[in-house]
């Protein structure tokens, strides 16, 4: 983990999303797929917290972050320009496991900007496989050519039907699962909204496969100190709180204890 004072190289819009490219000599070379950085939004004096953003691309001396402007901090981040000074803390979190038995086929499921850590993962997995990407509209479909150039089969679903299948990415996944060769053993990797992650996890559990799910959460410190971004996990010793920033953000589907609608409290042993 490093605290790096660096600068913005570029920022550009990509559909509803933004790609922020930063110089980084210390963090970029150390990043593993699924890890994130905690970024201090420049000139946002009244915001006391950093913003956690997934690493989308990492090279020797630079990294790219993909984000969607959704609130006060990420909204202000859209005004950041090349040359602006930025403070980064990272790389943070556990990341996706990249070791994969040769008989498994990686199946990546991305919801919206959840494609960011999966793109980094796609370059490092030992086998190529298939990517299912779901977004609101065709203009938000990202990295299709990049995935294909790496040898991945890329399938898109859009909510408005402007590209690929209309509807949810999980419906697209279900169609493929029904028609896949019976000897194919999938290993799932997913990043996106909770509803999508939960649906992918349920399919994996039912089929007896593994699903590595990356959770997107508001965070405080980002290093495991403040205990704000906790998630209930099923562990041998019982139901425990895991820290999404430090113990995650990637958890295997069987570990995650999802909240039920309307539920307010569930016992956690510690």
């Amino acid at each position: 983990m490093h605290l790096e004072n660096t600068c913005v190289l570029s920022q550009k819009a990509l559909g509803n999303y933004r790609v922020l490219e930063l110089a980084s000599e210390r963090i970029a070379p150390a990043v593993r797929p699924g890890q994130f950085v905690h970024l201090r939004v420049p000139r946002l004096a009244d915001a006391v917290l950093r913003r956690p953003l997934s690493v989308f691309r990492a090279e020797a001396d630079r990294l790219a972050l993909l984000y969607k402007p959704i609130g006060y901090g990420t909204g202000a981040l859209t005004r950041v320009q090349a040359g602006d000074a930025v403070s980064l803390l990272g790389p943070l979190g556990n990341g996706f496991p990249v070791a994969l038995p040769p008989d498994r086929m990686p199946v990546l499921v991305a919801g919206g900007y959840g494609v960011a850590p999966l793109f980094l993962l796609a370059r490092e997995l030992p086998q190529r496989g298939i990517v299912f990407a779901g977004t609101a509209s065709a203009k938000d479909i990202l990295c299709r050519e990049d995935f294909e150039a790496l040898g991945w089969d890329y399938r898109a679903a859009t909510e408005d039907g402007t590209l690929g299948r209309q509807g949810l990415v999980t419906a697209l996944l279900d169609d493929w699962m029904r028609n896949r060769p019976s000897n194919l053993m999938p290993e799932f990797y997913a990043c996106g909204p909770d509803g999508m992650l939960r649906a992918v996890g349920e399919r994996a559990v039912v089929g007896g496969w593994r699903a590595w799910l990356s959770l997107d959460r508001h965070m405080g410190c980002g290093v495991g100190a403040c205990l704000a971004c906790v998630q209930r996990l099923r562990r041998p010793e019982g139901i425990v709180w895991g820290r999404v920033c430090r113990d995650g953000p990637v958890f295997e589907a069987r570990e995650i204890v999802w909240d039920e609608p309307g539920e307010t409290k569930k016992e956690v042993s510690r």
């Binding site: 009244d46 915001a47 006391v48 917290l49 006060y72 901090g73 508001h218 405080g220 403040c226 205990l227 704000a228 971004c229 906790v230 998630q231 709180w241 307010t264 409290k265 569930k266 016992e267 956690v268 042993s269 510690r270």
Partner: peptide
Amino acid sequence: WSGNPIPRLVEVPGGLVNAI
């Protein structure tokens, strides 16, 4: 002690409100 359910923290102008 297991603490409170989530969400446990929210940012506000000039600070944050926590209920860890």
